[in-house]
């Protein structure tokens, strides 16, 4: 029974004010700053500094490489785990326990999780001990301060997202469709490839988008596991605000980061939509 236009205005007043004042305007300020010099003149030189410099492209390349690899690994590891939870686990309490194990890391600070990996991946950490003990390596591997270390930490933090989205999609697939496919003579693998997987594609995409957008803008995990030896875009942007205090240049870095994130979200959702259209066309 909220029917009048006046009520609508009242309902929207607070959300609109808060998000305009503390979200849209600040982002606008950053955007304007990225296009001006210290004394307020219009310039594109901040973006020139970001985009014409080999060092920045190297940082962007590292950021992208980490984000793409994390996304792929999260999907590859997440799909079997989601399958296991939805299709294989029969015992309700165990599934519940598994879901709790899955969500617990999500509810724990990046710091705490990365801290755990600092202990595990150290020169004398559990991982190196185990590998040495198994005779797989002769000298401890250096993880901390390498992209591999950061990747392990990122995948760890982002994996639950893909498991949850894929699991959700998987739980909604009608079993009768798979039965029909088997009935029509397709083997289990064929059925998975042409029925189940396409039906869960939107879950894979949704999970992928979340992982990618979070990986590309991750700050804490790379900062802790890089030991200052690897730099990603978010760290570069943060430096400008926290230590260099160059808000114009920092603004350009922020907007670059924002643009990459939004562009990738846009492309992925566009691809998902194309996929849907193709299926309808068939």
């Amino acid at each position: 029974m909220f029917t009048s236009r006046l009520t609508l205005l009242w309902l929207l007043a607070l959300p609109l004010c808060v998000f305009t004042a503390f979200f849209l305007i600040p982002l606008g300020v950053v955007f304007v700053a990225s296009l001006t010099t210290q004394d307020g003149q219009f310039t594109l030189s901040q973006y020139g500094r970001v985009l014409l410099d080999g060092y920045h492209w190297q940082v962007i390349a590292v950021t992208f490489r980490l984000a793409i690899l994390s996304t792929i690994i999260c999907i590859v590891l997440g799909y079997p785990l989601a399958w296991y939870l939805v299709r294989i686990v029969k015992w309700r309490s165990w599934r519940r326990a598994c879901v709790i194990m899955l969500i617990l890391p999500l509810f724990t600070s990046n710091i705490v999780r990365s801290f755990g990996w600092m202990v595990l991946l150290g020169r004398t950490g559990l991982v190196n001990d185990a590998l040495l003990g198994a005779g797989l390596i002769e000298r401890p591997i250096r993880f901390l301060g390498t992209e591999t270390g950061i990747l392990i930490g990122l995948v760890y933090i982002l994996l639950p997202f893909t498991v949850l989205t894929i699991g959700n999609a998987l739980a909604r697939v009608e079993p009768s469709l798979e039965h029909a496919s088997r009935d029509l003579g397709a083997g289990p693998l064929r059925t998975f490839c042409s029925i189940t997987f396409p039906l869960t594609m939107h879950g894979v995409m949704a999970g992928g988008i979340i992982v990618f957008s979070m990986a590309i803008s991750a700050y804490v995990t790379p900062a802790l596991l890089s030991g200052g030896k690897v730099t990603v875009l978010a760290m570069l942007a943060f430096q400008q605000y926290s230590t260099v205090f160059d808000f114009n240049y920092g603004g350009a870095l922020s907007i670059t980061l924002l643009t990459f994130t939004m562009a990738l979200i846009g492309i992925s959702s566009w691809m998902t939509r194309i996929g849907v259209h193709e299926k309808k066309g068939n």
Binding site: P26, L27, V30, S213, A234, A237, S254, L257, L258, T261
Partner: peptide, 10 residues
């Protein structure tokens, strides 16, 4: 989905 570091900076 937007980078928190950007929101924070803004």
């Amino acid at each position: 989905v937007l980078p928190h570091i950007v929101i924070g900076a803004a």
